[in-house]
Simulated scan of single mutants.
Amino acid sequence: MNGVSLSVRKAGWQVRQGETILHPVSFDLEAGKVLGIAGANGAGKSTLLRLLYRFHKPSEGAIFLDGHDIWRMSSREAARKVAAVLQEQPTDFALSVYEIVALGRRPHGSGLARSGKRDAEIVETAIERMGLSPYSHRSFGTLSGGERQRVMVARALAQEPQVLILDEPTNHLDIRHQLEIVSLIGSLNITIVASLHDLNLASEVCDRVLLLHKGHTVGFGTPETVLTPENIAEAYSVQARLVQFAHSERAHLTFHL
Rank of each mutant, 00 (worst) to 15 (best):
L52Q: 09
H68K: 15
P134E: 11
W13G: 02
I63L: 15
S144D: 02
E30F: 05
D174P: 07
S5I: 06
A79L: 03
L157F: 10
H213I: 00
K45Y: 04
V243C: 08
I181Q: 01
L48E: 10
D198V: 04
L35D: 06
Y98P: 01
S237I: 00
Y98N: 09
H23M: 07
T225M: 06
R150D: 01
Q149M: 04
H56N: 14
L29T: 11
E180Y: 06
V82S: 11
Q239C: 03
E204V: 04
A156E: 03
E77S: 14
P161V: 11
I70F: 13
V97K: 00
V205I: 15
A40W: 01
S133M: 14
P107W: 00
L112T: 05
V218S: 06
L188W: 15
N171P: 00
I70C: 11
I100N: 07
R105I: 08
V226N: 05
G36H: 06
R72M: 07
V153L: 15
A43I: 10
D198N: 13
L227P: 08
S136C: 08
E204G: 01
W71D: 14
G3S: 07
T142K: 12
S237M: 00
V4S: 04
K10I: 00
H252W: 13
I190W: 09
A102R: 10
S115N: 11
L184E: 12
T125G: 01
H256L: 07
F55D: 14
P169Q: 07
L212Y: 07
A78V: 11
D207N: 14
A246F: 11
P229N: 05
G12H: 09
K117V: 05
Q89F: 06
S195W: 01
S237D: 13
G39Y: 05
C206N: 07
E168Q: 06
M130S: 00
V193Y: 02
M73K: 14
E147F: 04
N200Q: 04
G141Y: 01
Q17K: 14
S248G: 02
V182P: 00
L257N: 11
H213S: 12
S115D: 08
P24M: 08
T91H: 12
R106S: 14
R129N: 04
S75N: 09
Q17H: 13
S110C: 03
R54G: 09
G104A: 10
T225N: 10
F93P: 10
G67Y: 09
A78E: 02
V193M: 07
W71F: 15
P169T: 10
S136F: 02
G116D: 13
A84R: 12
H213K: 13
W71H: 15
R208H: 13
D198S: 10
K214Q: 15
E249Q: 13
A233C: 01
I100D: 08
A62S: 14
L253S: 04
V163H: 05
L132P: 03
L164I: 12
S110Y: 03
A84Q: 08
S96Q: 05
L132Y: 03
L227D: 01
P161M: 05
N231I: 00
R106T: 15
A154W: 01
K33Q: 14
L22S: 09
S136I: 15
S46G: 11
C206M: 07
N171H: 12
